[in-house]
Amino acid sequence: MTVHALVRRLCGTFAVGVALSGALSACAPIEPWVKPYERENLADPVMAFDRFPVSTAYLDHVFEAREGARGATGNAGGGCGCN
């Protein structure tokens, strides 16, 4: 797979996801478009948002000490008091 094809695939899947989110939010009931048995890729350890919690926390610490910005670091599964 070429890089160009990969980028196209990424953009395509993202657009589909966003479109589905919007469409499904307007309908009821909402049907999961990714079934539990279709989440093998998402469950792979390489897809974990934070494989190394101690290490990530340390790096966040370093960056926040050196930079003016803070918060919403995105390592914590959605604003769970951890940014």
């Binding site: 899947t13 995105g74 959605g78 008091g81």
Partner: peptide, 24 residues
């Protein structure tokens, strides 16, 4: 004081996203 909200969303079989907003 910090106020945070976030949403984690499965987008496709191979793509997942997180949006965060935080006020400090």
């Amino acid at each position: 004081r910090s106020y945070a909200v976030g949403i984690t969303q499965v987008l496709t079989r191979s793509l997942i996203g997180i949006a965060n907003f935080e006020v400090i």
